[in-house]
Amino acid sequence: MPTDWRRALAVVAHPDDLEYGCAAAIAGWTDGGREVSYLLATRGEAGIDTLEPEKAAPLRECEQRASAAVVGVSTVEFLDHRDGVIEYGLPLRRDVAAAIRRHRPELLVTLNHRDTWGGVAWNTPDHRAVGRATLDAAGDAGNRWIFPELAEAGLQPWNGVRWVAVAGSSAPTHAVDATAGWSAR
């Protein structure tokens, strides 16, 4: 995994996605002085079967902010797409591209965007949509002709995304030793 970067943006669908996917690596990065911000497409309102969405959303948002703080992340943003029914498309790509322009990361982190987890278990539609939109938004963020309304709102194009890390990939090409981040918590 490359180490010559200073800022990362982690983009996932739900609260707890990063904790299952890569929070220990993020802890190591922030301990090493790197800046990591979180962008979540939903507030996870459909994620607790025994709680109505309007009660689950604030609870899961609070849990996500607390969990992010444990690994050294202070910026956590939510896009308010609906949990369980996120659609891949221009609105999602625009929202992620706007965040990339705002945070100006060199590294993007997202979750597995493939149909399955290693060919064994089916992946959720939300994970697939957000992961694929993140990959596309990396290019969209740098193109002034795609979503020109973002520039009009003061979000200038950003071509500085040098790497995209996909946690939980079934075909990894790089790895991070997360031992230090894991054991420190």
Rank of each mutant, 00 (worst) to 15 (best):
residue 122 W to S: 10
residue 97 A to C: 02
residue 125 P to F: 01
residue 84 G to V: 13
residue 114 R to Y: 11
residue 83 D to E: 09
residue 76 V to H: 00
residue 146 I to A: 09
residue 83 D to A: 00
residue 152 E to Q: 11
residue 127 H to W: 02
residue 118 G to E: 11
residue 120 V to F: 07
residue 153 A to V: 05
residue 114 R to F: 09
residue 108 L to P: 08
residue 93 R to E: 12
residue 94 R to Y: 01
residue 130 V to P: 03
residue 92 L to G: 07
residue 121 A to T: 15
residue 67 S to H: 01
residue 131 G to P: 08
residue 70 V to T: 15
residue 147 F to V: 04
residue 123 N to M: 06
residue 151 A to G: 06
residue 82 R to T: 13
residue 68 A to S: 07
residue 116 T to S: 13
residue 87 E to D: 12
residue 73 V to C: 00
residue 130 V to I: 12
residue 87 E to L: 10
residue 100 I to P: 08
residue 103 H to A: 06
residue 98 A to E: 14
residue 90 L to G: 05
residue 113 H to F: 12
residue 134 T to E: 09
residue 96 V to K: 02
residue 129 A to S: 12
residue 92 L to C: 09
residue 144 R to D: 13
residue 155 L to W: 00
residue 91 P to N: 10
residue 91 P to L: 07
residue 78 F to W: 06
residue 146 I to P: 00
residue 150 L to W: 08
residue 64 Q to W: 02
residue 121 A to V: 15
residue 87 E to Y: 01
residue 128 R to N: 01
residue 141 A to M: 07
residue 77 E to A: 15
residue 146 I to T: 15
residue 66 A to G: 04
residue 82 R to L: 10
residue 84 G to Q: 13
residue 80 D to S: 10
residue 76 V to I: 07
residue 80 D to K: 06
residue 95 D to I: 01
residue 93 R to N: 08
residue 147 F to P: 05
residue 99 A to D: 09
residue 142 G to K: 05
residue 126 D to I: 05
residue 85 V to D: 04
residue 134 T to R: 01
residue 74 S to F: 01
residue 78 F to I: 12
residue 68 A to R: 03
residue 94 R to F: 03
residue 125 P to R: 14
residue 135 L to Q: 09
residue 65 R to N: 03
residue 74 S to D: 13
residue 95 D to C: 04
residue 76 V to W: 06
residue 133 A to T: 07
residue 123 N to L: 01
residue 138 A to D: 13
residue 73 V to W: 02
residue 80 D to V: 00
residue 79 L to F: 02
residue 154 G to I: 03
residue 129 A to F: 00
residue 138 A to L: 11
residue 139 G to D: 14
residue 63 E to Q: 12
residue 88 Y to S: 12
residue 71 V to Q: 03
residue 129 A to Q: 05
residue 148 P to Q: 06
residue 64 Q to E: 15
residue 104 R to D: 10
residue 113 H to D: 12
residue 140 D to A: 15
residue 76 V to S: 05
residue 146 I to R: 15
residue 77 E to V: 11
residue 81 H to A: 14
residue 123 N to E: 09
residue 126 D to Q: 05
residue 138 A to W: 08
residue 147 F to R: 03
residue 70 V to A: 11
residue 77 E to S: 13
residue 117 W to Y: 15
residue 133 A to P: 11
residue 121 A to Q: 14
residue 141 A to H: 13
residue 66 A to Y: 01
residue 144 R to L: 02
residue 118 G to W: 11
residue 114 R to E: 15
residue 72 G to T: 11
residue 155 L to P: 06
residue 134 T to S: 09
residue 78 F to K: 07
residue 148 P to H: 02
residue 127 H to M: 03
residue 73 V to R: 02
residue 146 I to K: 11
residue 139 G to I: 06
residue 89 G to C: 03
residue 94 R to I: 07
residue 74 S to E: 12
residue 145 W to D: 13
